[in-house]
């Protein structure tokens, strides 16, 4: 069975990595393929890495307010690329108002401080399915 491909990265000059590393770990434990895009991404570099890694889902981790600046650009860039990859944003800085704002931008799911691992895995698996199913159909038998 094809596995879910997830690209996880942090944008701007935010260097808090605990969350991104923890999430990458439990996604791998749940048998997903995680491509860790690391720090210092811009919307361009993150989308490029996601396209190169044939990501089914893009995960953005944030522990600063830079996401307010970068997310609109990321969503625009993704739309321009013609690929409809769902974006998931996680970080303890996300407030209820932020989550509403990100949903308006077209972000598929947001995880604040209360999210548990199981909830994140389930959501990403559900969002990744169309891409995974497509790859399964295309896979040589």
């Amino acid at each position: 069975m094809a596995r879910e491909q997830v690209t996880i990265g942090i944008m701007g000059i935010d260097q808090h990595e605990n969350g991104a590393i923890a999430v990458s770990r439990f996604l791998r434990e749940a048998q997903m393929e995680v491509s860790y895009a690391g720090l210092f991404n811009t919307p361009d570099t993150l989308v490029d890495k996601a396209l190169a890694g044939e990501a089914d889902v893009i995960g953005v981790s944030c522990h600063s307010w830079e996401f307010l600046h970068y997310l609109p650009e990321l969503m625009r860039r993704l739309k321009d690329s013609g690929r409809d990859i769902p974006v998931v944003v996680g970080g303890s800085v996300l407030t209820p108002a932020d989550r509403a704002r990100l949903a308006e931008l077209g972000v598929a799911a947001c995880f604040g401080a209360g999210a548990d691992a199981e909830q994140i895995v389930d959501t990403i698996r559900r969002l990744a399915r169309p891409g995974v199913t497509r790859r399964e159909a295309e896979a040589p038998r």
């Binding site: 701007g12 000059i13 935010d14 260097q15 811009t42 600063s64 307010w65 830079e66 307010l68 600046h69």
Partner: peptide, 22 residues
């Protein structure tokens, strides 16, 4: 802030959105 802690000036393109916020 994050740029200052990383020896980066605030008018650097990567620093601007973070200038003074942390």
């Amino acid at each position: 802030d994050a740029p200052t802690m990383s020896m980066t000036d605030p008018d650097h393109p990567l620093a601007r959105p973070a200038a003074g916020t942390q």
